[in-house]
Design a binder for these strands. Sequence first.
DNA 1: CGATTCGGAATGAACGTTCATTCCTTTTTA
DNA 2: TAAAAAGGAATGAACGTTCATTCCGAATCG
Lengths: 192, 192
Amino acid sequence: MSKIDKRDEIVRAALELIAENGFHGAPMAMIASRANVGAGTIYRYFENKDVLITELYRDIEENIMAALQEKYSVGEPFRERFLHLGTGLLHHFIHNPLVFRYLEQFHNSPYGVASRRDKILGTATSDCNVFRELFQLGITQQILKDLPLVILFALFFGPVLSVARDHILGFVELDEALIHHTIEACWDGIKR
Amino acid sequence: MSKIDKRDEIVRAALELIAENGFHGAPMAMIASRANVGAGTIYRYFENKDVLITELYRDIEENIMAALQEKYSVGEPFRERFLHLGTGLLHHFIHNPLVFRYLEQFHNSPYGVASRRDKILGTATSDCNVFRELFQLGITQQILKDLPLVILFALFFGPVLSVARDHILGFVELDEALIHHTIEACWDGIKR
DNA sequence: CGATTCGGAATGAACGTTCATTCCTTTTTA
DNA sequence: TAAAAAGGAATGAACGTTCATTCCGAATCG
C-alpha cells in the first residue's frame, strides 16, 4: 500500500467509525484495525487524534464546497440560485450519510463551537462563503427579510440539517419532490 | 442538608457540568464535588450515570411542557396559538441556557436518538404532544402546508434551536422583536 | 434524663477498565 | 545494508463504580 493510500485508509476508517459511534466510540486502536494498520502508524500521519479529527473535517468541508460550486451559476435569478444551492446541499447530505453524521458529531462537540464562530463572524475563508455572499446580496437587494444574517442562516440551515438527519435516521423518506418542497418552504421563511 | 436537598444538589451540579462540558467533561467525581457530596453518595440516589442523565432529562422536559401549557389557550385562532407556543419555547430556552445546552448534549448523543424516534413516531406520551396536535390540526384544516409532520417539525424546531444556540453562544442578541420576527418567519415557512 | 447502642446514610480511597500515546522491535525500501 | 516505515505491546492517565469504614441522629436502657 502506498503512503497516500495508507493515509486515505486511516481517514476513511476514522470517518466511518466516528460517524457511526461518535468520537468516544472510535478509539484509535479501532480506527487502526479498521484501516488495516498498526496503532502506532496513525501517528506517522497525524500528530494526535485532535489533528486527525480536524483535518478530516477540513477535507469534508472542501468536498462539499466543491460539490456545491458545480451546480452554481451566477447568471440565474436569485431565487433559483438559492434553490439550487439548497437542494444541492440537501442532496449531498442524503447521498453521503457518513459525511453528514460526521459533521453532526463535529459540530456538537467542543471542536464545533470555534468553527461555528468563524463561520458566523465570517472569519473563515474556506467556509460557507457561497451562502454568506448570497444571503448578504439578498438582504441588500431587499429580496430577503431584513434580519441579521445569523437568523437567516438558522432559517435555512436549521431545517436542512434537521430533515437530512431525519432522512438518514429513517424517520422520513426524502424523494426528489419532498426535497424541493422543503427547500421551497425555507425560501418562504426567508424571503421578504 | 436534607435528603431531598442532596438529590437536588446532585441534579443541579450534573446539569451545570454537563451543559457546560458535555457528558464526557462531567465525570462523576466532578459532579460530586460540585454538589458538595461524596463520590459514592450519588449512587445512593441514582443507580448509575445513565440513570442520572435520563432522569435529569425527564425533569427538564416536564418543566418545559408545564411552562408552555401556561401560555396556551385553545380559544385563539390557529396562527396566534402557533406564535404563542413558538415564542414561548424560544423564551424558555433563552432564559434557561443551561437547560438548553443540556438538551443539546442529550439529543446529540446515543440517548437522544431513541427519544427522538419516540417523539416523531408519537410513541411518547409526555412529549411535545402539544406541538404534534397543533401541527396535525393545521394540516387537516389546510392551514399548514401538506407535508409530512417530520418536515414541518424540522421547519419549526430547526430554526428555533439554531437561533437559541446562537443567542446563548453570544453570536446574536435576541430581543423581543427579533424573537417575534424569527417565529413569524417560521410561520411563513410552514403556512400554506 | 444522661449514657449507650444501633442503623442507615455518607464517604472517598481503591479497583478494574479503557483509551491515547509512546517506544522499541521488525519489516520494507532504496 | 543502511535508513525509513510499520507494527503492536507497554505505559500511564482518566474514568465509572464499589465497598469497607466513618459519621450522626434516633432509639433504648439504666
